[in-house]
Design a protein around this nucleic acid. Structure first.
Lengths: 357, 357
DNA sequence: GCCAAATCTGACAACGCTGTCAAATAAATT
DNA sequence: AATTTATTTGACAGCGTTGTCAGATTTGGC
């Protein structure tokens, strides 16, 4: 009873200095045990309404915010999500990032961004280390990590729920957020076919990215549906970056007969391709039509504006975060993790880089 | 003595399953106290070399990784840095992000990315909440947050060391990483002057960004040095985004007499400007010369390639992280936080958007 | 070979919270 | 009114580490 005044005094100073107060301070001020404060802060049931109000008021007065680290150590949740990535396309990660963080905000979560080095070789060590070091409530895997067995194994071994964005291999292994890349690629190809193109080139993406194969399949199937067998000289290997687009362009334009249209597996390579065309005086779309994939900001910067497939990256990020967050927010009765597949729609964005033949 | 075998057995299974082991496991396996393990893991002195080796071996065998959360709770370090930002230019944040993370990696640190909503109004609540929720070893403030008194006060009240990147107001308030924006802007302007331009427009950046004023000063001083008093109709207000560049462009090109060159406070606005020019059939650089600021990837995508000032963002990120990390890595004898100013060099990147008159 | 000083090591109490479980209180039943 | 049952509450033991401090061991000086 004697020390009851202490926290009140401290409260006064706190409002001024905004120093941190602990659960103990709140408990004393409200005249309850710390466990009760804990219950209120976590919206647990079985607290009398009157008590709850009392605690809330005390907490408000003291500007109390539960310490994340302590919660995590004592309890079963860490309030931490992690985006594990290795991606050559900055805009992609950017959007993923932002989308996930947006959702985290709403749930009092925070995001750890962890780019991974693929070259270094010790991916497993790196990820296992991370997972041992900080307890995570969920991990989001983007391509190409989402298709790597080591990565999945490591995350699974740590018992951390995870979702894969646009995976290619091992379907049904865990929750998935995707876009129908094959169909998108097919529609892009069909768009070209509808415009009267027959000789259609295709620049493949990085071979380690699942999307690469999916998009390739889409291209091939659309071509075959149109009764055209894709020729080897139409298909170039790229790596999802500007430079590989340049290389592909050089190869195409050095050949005697070039395609009338080229479908690039992503925008950055299309930009590289366009840059070579520019240099060689090959006009787009007059001399050659080009279509990309991603709808990065550069599409409207480059001239002519690039026709492309828009990937709903932000929405995919939202979906991925939501899956993980709904897991941790109590409701245990959701569908099994590996049953979740969320497929988001793509859009073909018509701009100026394709002409009808 | 009887339970000594347990950890060894567990070790065997651990190598297989990669489950987490605690400091206790290591201590038992090495036959020392947990405190000694702690000392070894933290590279503290006063451990016999032999003991140290023994512990290290045990830790290696068990794949032991100290739990970050527990360390943070018990000790004085959290191994967490935070990038607080609100930025209209994604590439900027992207680079900051990546630079900081790179450095964090080397020191076993992790990065929390925390974009802030400026509209919502409750910036203080948001940041204070974050700081109360998770103990941070350091915060990095980018423009415009780095110039906001509330933000600094809040961080200071929490006693968290922080560094400001490219601040404008309150010099010397804390460690700073910067670039001489005024000089950069002056050189950009002088570059235009040297090419024979006299009527030089200037698109200002977002008024809440300190760099805006610095760059403006550089422009004005270069003009005056050349004996030219900048005219009001040459100067347009922008907001660092594409759209405001478009607006500025419309304004310039609607006027009877337009400048022969325009210096845009950043690339994105320059892109907007170029896009309007394109639409109006105004040729760059024949009819108008344009220079940007930032050197974003779009510069080599757009046609003609944009001459611009390169900001060493990645290096600034490194510097910022280094300042914070050197603080926490024991050495207390560094210079006072508010004495640190690291200034990095800019570069004028000459491309094709400016012509000599 | 003995004592002081330097060097190493370990017990134990935090850190701020949650989980478990038992005690206290209120409500419902007889 | 006496039980039984449901609802609220709190004590206490962790969670996995580091800090403090005292005890044990080694080293150096004579």
């Amino acid at each position: 009873m004697t020390q009851i005044k202490a926290p009140a005094e401290r409260a006064a100073s706190l409002t001024a200095t905004s120093a941190v107060s602990t659960i103990n301070d709140v408990a004393r001020l409200a005249g309850v045990s710390i466990k009760t404060v804990s219950r209120v802060m976590n919206n647990e049931p079985n607290v009398r309404e009157e008590t709850r109000a009392k605690v809330k008021e005390a907490a408000g007065l003291l500007h109390y915010r539960p310490n994340l680290l302590a919660r995590s150590l004592a309890g079963s949740r860490s309030f931490l999500l992690c985006l594990l990535y290795h991606n050559p396309v900055p805009t992609y990660i950017n959007n993923m990032h932002q989308g996930v963080i947006n959702r985290c905000r709403q749930s009092g979560y925070h995001l750890l961004a962890e780019p991974q080095d693929l070259q270094g070789g010790d991916l497993e060590r790196s990820i296992a280390g991370l997972l041992a070091t900080v307890r995570l409530d969920g991990v989001i895997l983007t391509p190409p990590l989402c298709d790597m067995a080591v990565v999945m194994q490591t995350v699974e071994a740590a018992g951390v729920p995870y979702v894969r964005v646009s995976p290619f291999l091992y379907p049904g292994r865990t929750a998935t957020v995707r876009m129908d890349e094959t169909r998108a690629a097919r529609e892009a190809t069909q768009y070209l076919l509808n415009k009267g193109h027959r000789d259609i080139g295709f620049i493949m993406g990085h071979p380690e990215h699942g999307g690469t194969h999916l998009r390739y399949q889409g291209y091939v199937s659309a071509m075959r549906d149109a009764g055209i067998e894709p020729r080897a000289e139409w298909i170039k290997q790229g790596y999802f970056n500007f430079e590989s687009g340049v290389e592909a362009g050089k190869a195409y334009f050095a050949a005697e007969k070039r395609p009338t249209a080229i479908f690039s597996s992503n925008d950055d390579m299309a930009f590289g391709l366009m840059s070579v065309a520019q240099q060689l005086g090959i006009r787009i779309p007059d001399d050659i039509s080009i279509i990309g994939f991603d709808d990065t900001p550069g599409c409207t910067l480059i001239w002519p504006h690039l026709t492309t497939i828009r990937q709903p990256i932000l929405d995919m990020a939202y979906a991925a975060a939501d899956i993980l967050l709904s897991r941790t927010s109590g409701e245990e009765d959701g569908p099994a993790m590996n049953d979740i597949v969320r497929e988001l729609p793509f859009t073909l964005i018509e701009r100026d880089s394709v002409r009808a033949l």
